[in-house]
Amino acid sequence: MAIKVFINGRPEDAEAPTTLPELLASVKIRPEVATLAVNKVIVRRDDIDGVALDDGDEVEIMLHLAGGSE
């Protein structure tokens, strides 16, 4: 069944059942370099594998921001 999820505010088509790891793989993002939120709640790293996505879910993928002068 086709569902629509919102990734960083933009609608994307997905095929249910879809999990958060599958969604990340589809956009080629490694979970270890991102903080993730689903429906405005941050998902703990240890919980990512168990998150299933439903139609209309809002997923925020925030790539880690860091760096430095040395």
Binding site: L65, A66, G67, S69
Partner: peptide, 9 residues
């Protein structure tokens, strides 16, 4: 840090 930055998630 004077040589590194990171933003809290």
């Amino acid at each position: 840090s004077a040589t590194y930055y990171s933003i809290d998630p």
